[in-house]
Amino acid sequence: MDTDSLIQTMVEEGASRPLPHPVKQTILWLAGTGFYLGFMGGYFGLRPDIVLKIDNFLYGLEIFFLCCMSVSTAMAAFCLSRPDGHQKPWMKYLPFGFAALWTVTAFTGAMDQIPIAEIFSAMSIAMSRGAFDCPKHIALFSIPPGLAIFLIVRLGAPTQYLWAGSIATWSATSFGYLLLRLIEQNDNPAHLIVWHALPIVFMCALGMIIGKYALRWR
């Protein structure tokens, strides 16, 4: 088929109607995720000391930065569903900024529990305890929103599919982490690193691989 005939065929088909703006997609996804997490939070029940914890400035700040990280990752994932990343190349790096702020806040809050010098030994103790329930819960909280975000991203044409896969997973799992922080009454930093943060890193790597196969625009 020569190029002119191809153009003629495509013109007859016509251009597709534009997808909703990434901000709109983010709001819709956040609404669905919020509803699901609200239901799960109601089912499992929030931690008994939640009122006291919310009064703690550092805990509140940690939750705030977690929210910022989750929302910015969702926004970045929807931007990455466009071939040109919605012409906002900085968007995919924004969650790293919030992640850094969240890490600093979480570490500062944890310093009164375990001295920094003992964190590695505490981590090896935490690892030996085998708290597999935590990553399982994170996965439970993250899988439905994760599936939804993957499906929405797939509607677009992601050319940076590895980024899109990992960022979409990061968004879903960070909401899972957030909910678990509100449910589980365990603030041990070693436990949080080993059984909450590291599984998320692992899941993001997995999301990258899934992105390669599920999101690749062909």
Binding site: T3, L6, I7, M10, E13, A15, S16, R17, P18, L19, H21, S81, R82, P83, D84, H86, Q87, L155, G156, A157, T159, W217
Partner: peptide, 24 residues
């Protein structure tokens, strides 16, 4: 050209067209 046609739904008219097209 086919890719541009298939991705036409991802183009935001508020953004420059050429940048979008050349990325594809």
């Amino acid at each position: 050209l086919i890719s541009i046609h298939r991705a036409s739904k991802t183009y935001d008219t508020a953004r420059p067209f050429k940048a979008w097209m050349f990325t594809i």
